[in-house]
Design a protein around this nucleic acid. Sequence first.
DNA 1: CTGTGTTTGTTGCAAACGCAACGAAATCTC
DNA 2: GAGATTTCGTTGCGTTTGCAACAAACACAG
Lengths: 162, 162
Amino acid sequence: MRLQQTQLKGPSRIPSDPIQRAWIALGRVSQLVQCDVDNALKEAGLPELTWYTVLWELERAGKPTRPKDLAIPLFILPYQLSRLVDRMEKDGLLKRIECKEDKRGHLLELTPKGFTMRKQMWTVYAPAMDEALKRISDPEALELARLLNKLGGLEYPVQPKG
Amino acid sequence: MRLQQTQLKGPSRIPSDPIQRAWIALGRVSQLVQCDVDNALKEAGLPELTWYTVLWELERAGKPTRPKDLAIPLFILPYQLSRLVDRMEKDGLLKRIECKEDKRGHLLELTPKGFTMRKQMWTVYAPAMDEALKRISDPEALELARLLNKLGGLEYPVQPKG
DNA sequence: CTGTGTTTGTTGCAAACGCAACGAAATCTC
DNA sequence: GAGATTTCGTTGCGTTTGCAACAAACACAG
């Protein structure tokens, strides 16, 4: 966890009770559901969720992609991605290929094995996600997503869909 | 991230679009606001949030407490707590004292330094939380908390308040 | 072209983590 | 009470993380 965000430094208030409740719920519930899905993947002997997001982002791009162009949407830091790519490359899920336009870096290219792996992960990921969120209805899910996105100041709706 | 949760193994459905949107938003936004608060503490040269939760839980209890009684509300595993306590004890924020009723374990006792530290962290934590969540109103925060707690199947409203 | 600053990505090191194995006390069973 | 089982907490070990320092390619000013 690193990353930075706009720091407007307001008048430094104490959070209201509703804000505190939202904060607590956000922390606990996100940890809980994250855990559920992580465990499902682990029990299936598959890599963790971060790997999926990299594979999916590469697949969505449809072409070899620069690490810096992955780091932003993935919310991860360069050095984290660097080592993540090390491991994924060692597992043969992607490979670093030359980038002729900019010799500082390289391009990340999905391998067939990487493509297969992403699909296989989805067969576990999807039901696990559905299971973890099954306590709320579709309309509630939409309202939740709306509130969260407003809270985070995000619109960017990256889909895990596969 | 570990912990387990009820695994009812439903019919293994693909998550609906609203569920997927909620899932994505939850992951991204929780990471974002968590990050904001973590950074605020780090910039102030203070320990991370987990330390606060331990200190606060001990303070709330009002008496020396067994590790196992902390681990559950804190959502952390025994071995994680064990090493966390190692570090906090080394920093003099709490100490392990004998437990006469059960010689396997011990009691964790908050030190004056630990008490002071928790208060000092709150002076940074509170404004950071308020800042991180300032994009939503109080009614929205309540609705968000309600949806999240429903989603997680939780009621348990632990307060960070200090 | 030369020097200065920026962008892109990697790496050495110390700290922290996850897991599985462990020891010791409590508890249960006969 | 002897022996098996469970609970509570710790630890060895290999992996992963965060941070700060770094190298190399680019960009740009003169």
